[in-house]
Simulated assay, not measured.
Amino acid sequence: MMRAKIAVTVDNFVFYKIKDTYKIALVERKNEPFKGHWALPGGFVDQDEDLPDAAKRELQEETGLVVDKTQQIGTFGKPGRDPRGHTISVVYLSQINGEKDLIANDDAAKAEWFDIKDLPKLAFDHSEIVNFAKQFL
């Protein structure tokens, strides 16, 4: 029996709270799939890379944010969530103290803070991930 090739990615749910409002960091994708759509910062795990290190690296590459602590909160792997093939994403949560400047880089065309109650349409299954992550706020 032939085993399917499965890719592993990490996604970052990074937020801060101001008064009664939560803001989360999103990036606009520079490349297909979902070019021009907003998504959680993240990407593929490199060979021999630990998952939390991959999450921190991808976050820094796409937004310029550096976080010391991050917590794994879930795993998403429904077939079809990524049109490139079966991809399992490990999601990390990080809280920062107040708004920091975001600098889009790597495969992010833009990086911005969004009110969690007023998000754009998100790529992949990132709306499902955001809804899941809200329980940790």
Rank of each mutant, 00 (worst) to 15 (best):
A4W: 12
A4H: 14
K5R: 15
K5T: 11
V8W: 15
T9C: 10
T9D: 11
V10F: 06
V10A: 05
V10I: 05
D11L: 14
D11R: 02
N12F: 10
N12S: 13
F13R: 03
F13H: 02
V14W: 13
V14K: 02
V14F: 15
Y16M: 10
K17I: 13
K17E: 13
K17H: 04
K19R: 05
T21D: 02
K23V: 09
K23L: 02
I24R: 09
I24G: 10
A25F: 02
V27S: 11
V27Q: 08
K30Q: 15
K30N: 14
K30E: 08
N31R: 08
E32H: 14
E32K: 15
P33T: 02
P33C: 05
G36R: 06
W38K: 04
A39I: 01
P41S: 03
F44P: 03
F44A: 01
F44W: 09
F44L: 07
D46E: 00
D46T: 04
D46V: 07
Q47L: 07
Q47I: 01
D48L: 11
L51C: 04
P52E: 12
P52I: 06
A54V: 08
K56I: 12
K56S: 04
R57V: 03
E58L: 15
E58F: 08
L59F: 09
Q60H: 12
E61D: 07
T63S: 10
T63R: 12
V67I: 15
D68W: 10
K69V: 14
T70W: 05
Q71T: 02
I73Q: 06
I73N: 05
G74P: 00
G74Q: 07
T75K: 15
F76I: 11
G77F: 11
G80A: 11
R81E: 04
D82P: 00
R84G: 11
R84E: 07
H86V: 05
T87W: 00
S89G: 02
S89Y: 01
V90S: 14
V91R: 05
V91A: 02
L93N: 05
L93P: 07
L93Q: 06
L93W: 08
I96T: 05
I96M: 06
N97Y: 06
G98V: 06
D101H: 14
L102V: 12
L102W: 01
A104S: 00
A104C: 09
D106Y: 14
D106L: 10
A108F: 13
A111T: 11
A111I: 07
W113L: 12
F114N: 02
I116N: 12
K117V: 08
K117S: 15
D118I: 00
D118M: 00
L119M: 06
P120Q: 00
L122I: 13
L122E: 10
L122H: 00
F124I: 07
D125E: 04
H126I: 01
H126G: 09
I129L: 12
V130Y: 06
V130H: 00
N131M: 10
F132G: 12
A133H: 15
Q135E: 15
Q135S: 15
F136L: 12
L137V: 13
